[in-house]
Design a protein around this nucleic acid. Sequence first.
DNA 1: GCCAACGTTGGC
DNA 2: GCCAACGTTGGC
Length: 150
Amino acid sequence: MRYWLMKSEPAEFSIDDLAREGHVAWFGVRNYQARNFMRDQMRVGDGVLFYHSTCAEPGIAGLAEVSVPAYPDATQFDAGGKYFDSKATQENPRWFNVEVRYVKHTRLLPISELRGYPELATMRILAKGNRLSITPVDPDEWNFILKHLG
DNA sequence: GCCAACGTTGGC
DNA sequence: GCCAACGTTGGC
């Protein structure tokens, strides 16, 4: 059982959208490190902090969980689509996605508040220049954050 | 809109 | 295989 933080731009896909749909494929990741996390480490039942990025109030907005293990991301084969990858083939796919299930909304826990807790100082998301859209969360960090979400 | 940080690309 | 140039991310 591992824990993760997954970023999403609410203008594209918010916690409200996840709540409405219940269950979604996390397609469109085009970064090898993030792909490797999904493909090699994410397991059904892993906990997910759903994070809103690139918006007025960036921060943790809800909880989700991994519901389906990684499989090839269908959008890489969609010629003309935004996520098409001409180097990917059915026999040798390059990109993978897990699926995640909505668990619940939380209060918005802003990144400014996260930065204020010494207990969270080593979180990947808070590291200078961090751009990874999927990052591992330590169990201690997970427990601390859940406690502070009330 | 700014800009620092980072990943990827492509010429050599 | 190096590395400069470029595009993207994302908080502020």
